[in-house]
Simulated scan of single mutants.
Amino acid sequence: MSGLFNMHGPRWLLIITVVLASALVFGSAAEAGADTGKSDRIVSLGGSVTEIIYALGAGSRVIARDTTSSFPPEAEKLPDVGYLRALSPEGVLSVSPGLIIAEEGAGPPETIDVLRNAKLPYFEIPESYDRAGIVSKILAVGDAINEAEKARVLANALDASLGAAQARAEARGIEHRKRVLFILSTQNDRILASGTGTAAAGIIALAGGDNAVTSFEGYKPLTDEAIIAAAPDVILMMDRGGDHGAANGELLAMPAVTLTPAGKSGAVVRMDGLYLLGFGPRTADAVNDLSAALYGG
């Protein structure tokens, strides 16, 4: 990263040029009192933020999105300004946004500093992986795009749906709560798994399961001994496949996995990553689907 933000390098000069140009454009419009319509030129950074904007009926105002914004399908037709946690300021600013809305955790920090100083509205939407957090996120996005009333209606409806989904999940797991191990990656035969404080831990709890790993926060590689000790009843993964997600046969053949209840029963659940971990408008459905996958019915 030090090469990217070398104050004497050509890349930094390009960033400064883009930022200054943006500042001149927005500053001139404000001084003239002109209505440029720029406030409708939204760049949405974060899959759940993009989903919420579309759910509020404001999708036509979005001009660009990040790579994680894969739903609804029409969002994928928009220009892609990069991966949420590896953004470049010149990429975001090149589309001449009037408003930037980003999930908490967008980065790197150097890029966010540039965007915050680009003389245009920048909103960071807090993340919290529980029912109240989703409601707060919807309301925050609604405030940012001046759709507060629509956001209130959507938030209330989703809160009710989540409450019902949680109740069904708790009923399904009342006799035996499943221990669930969320595996983020199996690259190089190393299992990278979720501890506490993650979207994975949050969705497992909402779906009536117990996170099998609670000894650390975030995502960390597990030793064979830790996998065996976690004793998951079910392994949960995203369905992206590729280098990061071993096929079921390969996963279940890993020596440590074969010794777990999930390995012995072949209990592996895979779901779309944004649907499962987005904590947005579809989360009540995701809770229902995950709960049914864990417990049946």
Results as ranks from 00 to 15, higher is better:
Phe182Asn: 07
Ser44Tyr: 03
Ser60Thr: 12
Tyr219Pro: 00
Val25Met: 11
Thr258Gln: 15
Phe279Thr: 07
Thr68Tyr: 05
Thr17Ile: 08
Glu104Cys: 07
Ala293Asn: 09
Arg172Gly: 01
Arg240Glu: 08
Gly105Asp: 07
Ile112Phe: 01
Asp272Tyr: 03
Asp210Met: 13
Ala32His: 02
Thr50Trp: 09
Glu51Lys: 13
Thr260Ile: 08
Gln166Glu: 15
Arg168Pro: 00
Ser96His: 10
Asp35Gln: 09
Pro221Asn: 07
Ala86Val: 07
Ala148Val: 05
Ala165Leu: 06
Ala23Lys: 14
Leu13Gly: 04
Phe123Thr: 08
Leu158Gly: 01
Val49Trp: 04
Ser2Ala: 15
Leu139Val: 12
Ile16Asn: 05
Val141His: 04
Met271Arg: 11
Asp272Phe: 04
Ser265Phe: 00
Ala106Ser: 15
Gly266Asp: 06
Asp272Trp: 03
Asn211Asp: 09
Glu31Val: 13
Ala30His: 05
Asn117Ala: 15
Lys119Asn: 14
Asp243Pro: 00
Ala144Met: 05
Leu192Val: 12
Glu225Ile: 05
Gly3Ser: 15
Val180Met: 09
Ala246Pro: 00
Thr283Pro: 00
Arg85Val: 10
Asp233Phe: 03
Val135Leu: 07
Gly297Asp: 08
Leu252Glu: 07
Ala247Pro: 00
Gly105His: 07
Arg240Ala: 10
Tyr129His: 14
Phe279Arg: 09
Ala118Lys: 11
Thr186Glu: 09
Glu31Lys: 15
Leu184Ile: 10
Ile16Ala: 10
Arg116Met: 12
Ala286Phe: 02
Val180Gly: 04
Val268Leu: 11
Thr68Lys: 11
Val81Cys: 07
Leu120Gln: 02
Pro261Gly: 04
Ser291Gln: 11
Pro109Val: 13
Ala262Asn: 10
Lys264Cys: 04
Gly133Arg: 10
Ile63Ala: 08
Lys150Tyr: 01
Arg11Glu: 08
Tyr275His: 14
Thr258Gly: 03
Asn288Trp: 02
Leu274Met: 15
Leu13Ala: 15
Gln166Val: 11
His244Arg: 13
Ser291Leu: 13
Pro89Glu: 10
Leu120Ile: 06
Gly263Asp: 10
Val257Leu: 12
Val81Gly: 04
Ser96Lys: 15
Ile125Tyr: 03
Tyr129Pro: 01
Arg116Phe: 01
Leu162Ile: 11
Gly245Tyr: 04
Tyr122Trp: 10
Lys150Trp: 00
Ala151Gly: 10
Ala157Cys: 03
Ile52Glu: 02
Phe216Ser: 08
Ala86Leu: 14
Gly297Ser: 12
